Amino acid sequence: MLEGKVKWFNSEKGFGFIEVEGQDDVFVHFSAIQGEGFKTLEEGQAVSFEIVEGNRGPQAANVTKEA
């Protein structure tokens, strides 16, 4: 699992990017966010995740919000 911070997330469109120190930003789709209820992320929020190869390159999977 990697750790990063949410760079930005558009809850209307359901996607955004996660910043990872020393690496390129990683695309995140709302469907990759773990948990119940409305799936969104806040700018600057700490998250842990895995990287998988998507249709358009690397993207986040199994995203969990850090306490």
Rank of each mutant, 00 (worst) to 15 (best):
M1N: 05
M1R: 10
M1A: 05
M1K: 09
M1G: 11
M1D: 03
L2S: 09
L2H: 15
L2I: 13
L2Y: 15
L2P: 04
L2R: 11
L2M: 14
E3F: 15
E3C: 11
E3P: 07
E3Q: 13
E3V: 13
E3S: 14
G4C: 00
G4L: 00
G4R: 00
G4I: 00
G4V: 00
G4N: 00
G4S: 01
G4P: 00
K5S: 10
K5H: 08
K5Q: 11
K5E: 06
K5R: 12
K5T: 13
K5A: 06
V6E: 00
V6F: 00
V6A: 03
V6K: 01
V6T: 05
V6R: 01
V6Q: 01
V6G: 00
V6I: 09
K7V: 06
K7Y: 01
K7L: 06
K7M: 05
K7Q: 04
K7F: 01
W8K: 05
W8I: 06
W8F: 10
W8G: 04
W8A: 05
W8D: 04
W8V: 06
F9R: 02
F9G: 01
F9S: 03
F9D: 01
F9W: 12
F9P: 01
F9K: 03
F9N: 01
F9Y: 08
F9A: 03
N10I: 04
N10L: 04
N10G: 04
N10H: 10
N10W: 04
S11Q: 13
S11C: 14
S11H: 09
S11Y: 12
S11N: 10
S11P: 15
E12T: 15
E12C: 15
E12D: 14
E12F: 15
E12I: 15
E12W: 15
E12V: 15
E12K: 14
E12G: 13
K13I: 08
K13R: 15
K13Q: 09
K13G: 06
K13P: 03
G14R: 05
G14Y: 00
G14C: 03
G14N: 03
G14V: 00
F15E: 07
F15Q: 05
F15K: 04
F15R: 04
F15P: 02
F15W: 15
F15I: 09
F15Y: 14
G16S: 01
G16T: 00
G16K: 00
G16M: 01
G16E: 01
G16W: 00
G16Q: 02
G16N: 00
F17E: 05
I18R: 01
I18L: 12
I18P: 00
I18Y: 01
I18F: 02
I18T: 02
I18H: 00
E19R: 12
E19H: 12
E19V: 08
E19K: 15
E19A: 14
E19I: 07
E19S: 14
V20H: 08
V20C: 12
V20F: 05
V20N: 07
V20A: 11
E21I: 09
G22T: 06
G22M: 06
G22Q: 09
G22Y: 05
G22D: 15
G22C: 06
Q23I: 10
Q23F: 07
Q23A: 12
Q23Y: 07
D24A: 08
D24K: 15
D24C: 11
D24F: 04
D24Y: 07
D24V: 09
D25A: 05
D25Y: 00
D25P: 06
D25Q: 05
D25F: 01
D25V: 02
D25I: 01
D25C: 03
V26N: 02
V26A: 04
V26L: 09
V26P: 01
V26D: 01
V26M: 06
F27C: 04
F27S: 04
F27P: 07
F27H: 04
F27V: 04
F27T: 03
F27A: 05
F27M: 05
F27E: 06
V28T: 04
V28G: 00
V28S: 01
V28I: 06
V28E: 02
V28W: 00
H29V: 01
H29M: 02
H29A: 03
H29W: 01
H29F: 00
H29S: 05
F30W: 15
F30G: 10
F30V: 10
F30A: 11
F30Y: 15
F30T: 07
F30D: 05
S31C: 03
S31P: 03
S31L: 04
S31M: 05
S31E: 06
A32I: 00
A32H: 06
A32R: 06
A32G: 08
A32W: 01
I33V: 10
I33M: 05
I33G: 03
I33N: 02
I33Y: 03
I33F: 06
I33R: 02
Q34E: 11
Q34I: 10
Q34F: 07
Q34K: 15
G35A: 13
G35H: 10
G35R: 04
G35S: 11
G35L: 04
E36F: 10
E36C: 10
E36M: 10
E36Y: 12
E36A: 09
E36H: 12
G37W: 04
G37P: 07
G37H: 09
G37E: 10
G37T: 08
G37S: 09
F38G: 09
F38S: 09
F38E: 13
F38M: 10
F38P: 09
F38I: 08
K39A: 07
K39Q: 08
K39R: 11
K39I: 06
K39M: 07
K39P: 08
K39T: 06
T40V: 12
T40Y: 09
T40K: 10
T40Q: 12
T40G: 09
L41Q: 00
L41K: 02
L41Y: 03
L41V: 06
L41N: 02
L41E: 00
E42T: 11
E42K: 15
E42G: 09
E42V: 13
E42M: 14
E42A: 13
E42C: 12
E42L: 12
E42D: 11
E43G: 14
E43W: 06
E43I: 12
E43R: 15
E43H: 14
E43F: 08
G44Y: 02
G44D: 09
G44N: 14
G44L: 02
G44A: 06
G44C: 04
G44K: 06
G44V: 00
G44T: 03
G44P: 01
Q45R: 06
Q45I: 05
Q45E: 13
Q45H: 06
Q45A: 11
Q45D: 08
Q45W: 05
A46Q: 12
A46R: 14
A46T: 11
A46I: 12
A46C: 13
A46N: 11
A46Y: 14
V47M: 01
V47F: 00
V47A: 02
V47K: 01
V47H: 01
V47G: 00
S48C: 13
S48T: 14
S48M: 15
S48Q: 14
S48W: 14
S48N: 12
S48L: 12
F49N: 00
F49L: 10
F49H: 00
F49W: 00
F49Q: 02
E50Q: 15
E50R: 12
E50G: 08
I51W: 06
I51K: 14
I51T: 06
I51N: 03
I51R: 08
I51A: 06
V52A: 10
V52G: 05
V52I: 14
V52H: 14
V52N: 09
V52S: 09
V52Y: 03
V52M: 12
V52W: 09
E53G: 08
E53Y: 14
E53W: 11
E53C: 12
E53F: 12
E53D: 11
E53A: 10
E53I: 08
E53K: 14
G54D: 08
G54R: 07
G54K: 08
G54A: 08
G54E: 07
G54F: 05
N55F: 12
N55E: 13
N55W: 09
N55Y: 14
N55M: 12
R56P: 06
R56T: 09
R56C: 07
G57Y: 05
G57Q: 05
G57A: 05
G57D: 03
P58T: 09
P58M: 13
P58S: 09
P58V: 11
Q59P: 01
Q59F: 12
Q59H: 11
Q59D: 03
A60L: 02
A60G: 03
A60R: 00
A60V: 02
A60W: 01
A60T: 02
A60Y: 01
A61W: 11
A61P: 01
A61D: 06
A61C: 13
A61Y: 11
A61F: 15
A61T: 11
A61K: 11
A61R: 14
N62I: 05
N62F: 08
N62C: 15
N62V: 06
N62Y: 08
N62E: 07
N62S: 09
N62G: 07
N62H: 12
N62P: 01
N62L: 08
N62W: 06
N62T: 06
V63P: 00
V63E: 02
V63T: 00
V63D: 03
V63L: 10
V63H: 00
T64K: 11
T64N: 11
T64H: 13
T64D: 08
T64W: 14
T64M: 11
K65E: 07
K65G: 11
K65V: 14
K65N: 08
K65F: 12
K65D: 06
K65Y: 11
E66D: 12
E66R: 14
E66I: 14
E66G: 13
E66V: 15
E66T: 13
E66N: 15
A67S: 14
A67F: 04
A67L: 10
A67G: 07
